[in-house]
């Protein structure tokens, strides 16, 4: 007796699993991007502001001594920190005293207001996008320190975080799919057998009872098999073979 495949019943199950994974994946990715972006940007901005303040505080004596070489040496050390892309220092008149730009001061920076120490977003042609923070020197009467951080680095970190999440999600998804297929197959096999028996019964009256393994099952498939067997009117002799009466739980 051929065993028909049970497909339609589980198509919805598969669809449900895929949909659920999709919704979970999308929502966690959005949440991840938002969280990483917000926290990382805030952290970088905070660090940059701390660096600007540190330079501003420590450069007072250097500026008063007119020692620009030491001032440059100071900012060169800070610009080695990951995420810090440029630093420049202006005096109270807005004159640029030291900076880390190569091949030179960008026109956007040159045209900006050096006394403004608010956080600003800058696009420097040929260099990229930056968030710039500032800190006044001697409350502004000594000039200001400006620190630029690369937003591209933040974006890269976000991409990495998302990439790691997608990798984890994909791994779980693939394992889940294989597990689902295995479990569905486990469930579908007795149902298919039962369906085959029901079809045979309806077609020409069953000449042979369902398999012993199906009749011995404790689940709904086994109960249905026994019910169908009962309806088909199998004899006590059959029962002696170990076939339970319909409705009799085993």
């Amino acid at each position: 007796m051929p065993i028909p495949k049970v497909q339609k019943l589980f198509q919805k199950t598969f669809f449900g699993i895929f949909s659920m994974f999709g919704v979970i994946g999308f929502s966690t990715s959005v949440l991840c991007v938002y969280t990483v972006d917000t926290h990382l940007s805030a952290e970088y901005e905070s660090n940059s502001r701390d660096i600007a303040k540190t330079i501003a505080d420590s450069s007072v004596d250097i500026l008063l001594n007119r020692d620009l070489a030491t001032l440059q040496s100071l900012i060169d050390q800070f610009v080695e920190i990951q995420g810090i892309s440029y630093i420049y220092i202006t005096d109270e008149t807005g004159t640029f005293l030291a900076h880390t730009f190569v091949p030179g001061l960008p026109e956007v920076i040159r045209q900006s207001d050096p006394s403004n120490t608010d956080t600003v977003e800058r696009n420097l042609p040929g260099m990229g996008d930056f968030v710039e923070v500032g800190s006044p020197i001697l409350a502004g009467v000594g000039g200001a320190v400006h620190v630029g951080m690369d937003t591209g680095l933040v974006a890269l970190k976000i991409q990495r975080a998302i990439g790691q999440q997608i990798y984890l999600f994909s791994t779980v998804f693939i394992i889940g799919v294989f597990a689902a297929v295995w479990f569905v197959n486990l469930a579908a096999k007795p149902l298919g057998e039962l369906l085959g028996y029901a079809v045979a019964l309806a077609k020409d009256g069953a000449k042979a009872p369902p398999s012993d393994s199906l009749l011995r099952r404790n689940d709904e498939a086994g109960q249905l098999a026994r019910l169908l067997l009962h309806c088909a009117g199998f004899t006590d002799a059959d029962n002696k073979r170990g076939v339970a009466a319909p409705g009799e739980a085993r």
Binding site: L68, A69, Q72, S73, D76, A98, F101, V102
Partner: peptide, 11 residues
């Protein structure tokens, strides 16, 4: 040179 030497000469 974008360092202390260059800045010294620049100054």
């Amino acid at each position: 040179q974008a360092d202390a030497y260059g800045r010294s000469g620049w100054a």
